[in-house]
Write a protein that binds this DNA or RNA. Structure first.
Lengths: 223, 223
DNA sequence: CGATCTTGGTGACAATGTCACCGACCTTTG
DNA sequence: CAAAGGTCGGTGACATTGTCACCAAGATCG
């Protein structure tokens, strides 16, 4: 298929690889498609392949012993989940899970191919280490946010990030509370306050942003 | 020096390396010593070497835009800070810093040696990826804790982890608050409550654990 | 010795989390 | 269609944690 030839070029870190290596990746990987809402990895279910996302997004979240949930990050098209996969392989008992949020298409690269690539190519090593580094610095930022950022700021920020081009966020209060690792009631109250200020309008299962500018000001805490 | 020959054997991931590689590491690395309280890396100060700790501990913490601080993790003897270093190199604008908590001795491995090792040795790759994976899963756990764990539980846990063999924690309320990313007043109140229960005794700049069993029960929330 | 810093204590209040409960809407099923 | 059950969101009371302003005792240093 034409697509199978082309996918590797969509990854900035992979397109610089030597042609022979690209060929190796292509011949030793397969394209997989999974529907929306599939748990592609989770406790007691470690994948044997590294995925490189061609389309769709994967939400990575965690369920606490206390029953609380929080969204850790998302993997977008053009990114890979080498790190999460690596973590899974190393520590079986961790609690994060990856769920497709949309129908997803990905290239699956077996572990031994991955290892060969790391050994053979400096470009690929740089790609992998950059991905790890980005993830770790993002987690640092997330810890900072969870620990120190006020909830109104975090919620405004999340609304902006989740809004589509029509400024609509199609989600429930419950799901927003999982995004921020807080309780539904807290989200409900805060959205009421935003609505009182005329910044948003609510409907069952959706929020429309009426005043994106004010929300952004709050999110960047230049209140 | 005898020590220079031996250090590599103290790292489980390195002792399995091929003798030629070990020799390469030894000849291309240097032993450094820094006193307690030194900032070995931080904003605008990325180290050019990977450190493998032989002695002492390094505290990695973060200062938020809001001025709040939180301890992210510690690097102990027998561990390396490849990951933090890698992050530094990749993202200059991150805000974490590493400070020696005790006098420290470490082996400094230049970046190009590191890259050669990753290319040449599967054992070394496994060592590096295991370190990254451990760090990421630990950060997942930390996010969970910060977001969902009650403060008394977290404080009890931290006291146990920081206590020396005499069950003494030599630290101030202020420093404990940075450990947990909270405020000093909150620590003071919580310690008062522990004291009221007879679990601890306080002195200026130190806390003695009188009833470690109860603290552990609380920390594992089998209250 | 006095000046200053560090450490910790205190009370009032704000922000957030928890719990119990309710009603409105939606979907399924008989 | 109607009843049943699930999802979604609202509410009030209360607990926990964070913030602020201020104070006092011990440590340090001239």
């Amino acid at each position: 298929m034409a697509e199978a030839e082309a996918w590797i070029e969509r990854f900035p870190g992979l397109s610089r690889l030597e042609p022979a290596l690209k060929q190796q990746i292509l011949s030793r990987s397969t394209i997989v498609e999974v529907p929306s809402g599939t748990t592609i990895f989770g406790p007691g279910n470690s994948p044997e392949n590294m995925l490189f996302l061609l389309n769709g997004t994967v939400r990575v979240q965690q369920v606490s012993e206390t029953g609380h949930e929080i969204v850790l990050y998302r993997i977008q098209a053009g990114q890979s989940c080498v790190l999460t996969t690596a973590c899974l392989l190393a520590y079986e008992d961790y609690s994060a899970e990856g769920i497709t949020e949309t129908p997803m298409r990905a290239a699956a690269v077996p572990r031994d191919v991955f290892d060969d690539l790391v050994a053979q190519s400096k470009s690929f090593r740089d790609f992998v280490f950059a991905a790890f580094s980005k993830r770790i610095t993002d987690l640092f930022l997330m810890i900072d946010e969870v620990a120190f950022q006020k909830l109104d700021v975090r919620l405004a920020d999340k609304l902006i990030k989740l809004a589509n081009k029509d400024n609509i966020v199609a989600t429930t209060h419950q799901k927003l509370s999982v995004e921020l690792g807080t309780a539904r009631e807290v989200i409900s109250r805060q959205l009421q306050e935003f609505q009182r200020r005329g910044w948003i309008e609510q409907a069952r299962g959706s929020v429309s942003l009426l005043n994106r500018v004010e929300l952004e000001k709050l999110a960047h805490h230049n209140t």
